[in-house]
Simulated assay, not measured.
Amino acid sequence: MDTTAFLRWLQGTMTEKGASHRKRIIRFQHTEDFRRFVHEWSEMKGSVSTLQAVRQMGIIQAISCPIPDDSPHRRFDGRVWVETDQRVRIHGVTSRVPAPEKGIPWGVAHVKAPQAWSTTTGHKIRIGVVDTGVDFNHPDLRGSLARGINLLNRSLLPHDDNGHGTHIAGTIAAANQPQGMIGVAPRSLIHPIKAFDHNGSAYVSDIILAIDWCVRNRMNIINMSFGMKSRSKALLNAVTNAANAGVIIVASSGNDGKRRAIDYPARYPQTISVGATTRLRRIAPFSNRGIYIDIYAPGDKITSAWLKGKYHEMSGTSMATSHVSGAVALLLAKHPELTPTEVKSALRRSMQPLRGKKAPRMTGELDIAKMLQIMEK
């Protein structure tokens, strides 16, 4: 491939006036083409301001940039694939200020995390939380936070301007007893990756950059409390490469109350897909469900950390996912050699049956004590 010609074409098309520009993901079929492109682009972007809008995603040999609807594969057919850079949303349903609740939240107790703490607290397990950032000053999170990245503005820390990311981090790893709350894996480390804006919206390319960062920085787990309805080959490619690198990806199924469909990336088999339950061990009415769900966990009226050192109650499959990420951290701290496939198997072999006449028999609810017990046999 003539990467110089491709760069010139890219420069011209990105500055084209009167055209409708949309963010695209352009994947190179051949590694050598991608390497040559990155080398030439790196040398040119300092002097060509247009090219500074191009972002490279090494994990899938791709770039993202705004280009017109006239896609480049017509000129560079067979050498690149092009897809629209879609929008992704976080999976929170409702949010309100709760009645004061300190100590162990109901969901953390419900999945039997406290029974595990005498043998594992998730010590030093690294969890990449791809979300809206985190409140660095929250007293319950200060001891649980490690280095992250702000993909929306790399010169800033990944500060949370929404609340969702802080809520997720709290359920996974809050550690402030007896003054505040405690999460599922209180000695695990949260690496906040801000890919979502204050409205809880991101592009697929932001998610791929986040996955890339997690793989390069050797995260053990990636928490993905978000989703979209349509498939993305680029995102599947990134998820597959991360799983092949040994990273466990936990993803929320979505909040549409669907019985036979769940959102992406949870629908990809390389992830652990999570549905939400209530205190009564029933599937929450808002939760997507069905054959694509690997496991259920508490997701209804979950109290956790919030902005400005406060607490909030939220419902959603996002909240269920954070319980499962914490459970995986507890498991990996004891059995660091486990692969993503083995972790999923351990979760599924130790589930509690769900309640309700129409409850699925093939899957159930997270039970940490049983999971750890099974692993000792």
Results as ranks from 00 to 15, higher is better:
254 G>H: 07
162 N>K: 10
235 L>G: 09
283 I>P: 06
229 K>R: 13
227 G>M: 09
195 A>M: 02
132 T>G: 03
7 L>F: 04
76 F>R: 01
16 E>K: 14
116 A>Y: 05
111 V>F: 05
212 D>K: 00
65 C>K: 05
356 G>W: 02
369 A>N: 13
358 K>M: 09
365 E>N: 07
348 R>V: 02
275 G>S: 02
51 L>H: 09
234 A>Y: 04
191 H>F: 10
174 A>R: 06
309 G>C: 04
147 R>W: 05
289 R>A: 11
163 G>Q: 07
31 T>M: 05
318 S>C: 05
180 G>R: 11
62 A>L: 03
79 R>H: 15
268 Y>P: 07
137 N>Y: 13
340 P>V: 00
296 Y>L: 06
351 M>A: 04
244 N>E: 15
117 W>A: 06
333 A>S: 15
247 V>S: 06
143 G>Y: 03
19 A>L: 01
203 Y>R: 15
75 R>W: 13
353 P>F: 00
279 R>T: 14
199 N>Y: 10
269 P>T: 06
273 S>D: 04
157 L>E: 15
362 M>Q: 12
349 R>A: 14
301 K>V: 02
178 P>W: 08
66 P>R: 00
135 D>G: 08
24 R>D: 00
198 H>N: 14
37 F>Y: 10
337 E>K: 09
126 R>K: 15
309 G>T: 03
160 D>L: 10
310 K>R: 15
322 S>N: 07
307 L>R: 04
209 L>D: 12
72 P>I: 04
89 R>E: 13
197 D>R: 10
11 Q>C: 10
220 N>E: 13
310 K>C: 09
26 I>F: 07
138 H>Q: 01
6 F>S: 02
209 L>V: 00
313 E>P: 07
355 R>Q: 12
69 D>I: 08
269 P>E: 02
42 S>A: 13
205 S>M: 06
132 T>M: 04
208 I>D: 05
365 E>Y: 03
256 D>G: 03
325 S>P: 12
90 I>W: 02
364 G>R: 12
1 M>Q: 12
198 H>W: 00
188 S>M: 13
96 R>E: 14
301 K>S: 15
165 G>A: 05
140 D>Y: 08
110 H>C: 08
108 V>N: 11
209 L>T: 01
75 R>H: 11
342 E>N: 07
308 K>L: 10
205 S>E: 10
219 M>I: 13
15 T>A: 15
231 R>F: 15
283 I>K: 00
129 V>D: 01
59 I>F: 00
50 T>C: 07
256 D>W: 02
109 A>M: 11
257 G>T: 01
7 L>K: 08
258 K>F: 12
109 A>P: 00
219 M>P: 08
196 F>N: 09
169 A>C: 11
321 T>H: 03
130 V>L: 11
330 L>D: 10
51 L>R: 07
29 Q>L: 14
53 A>H: 11
88 V>C: 11
281 R>K: 14
149 I>N: 01
356 G>S: 08
16 E>Y: 01
151 L>F: 07
117 W>V: 03
54 V>H: 07
234 A>I: 03
235 L>A: 12
42 S>K: 13
340 P>N: 05
75 R>F: 13
314 M>H: 02
60 I>E: 04
261 A>M: 13
160 D>Y: 09
42 S>G: 13
135 D>Y: 08
67 I>H: 09
368 I>W: 06
322 S>R: 04
368 I>L: 13
212 D>I: 04
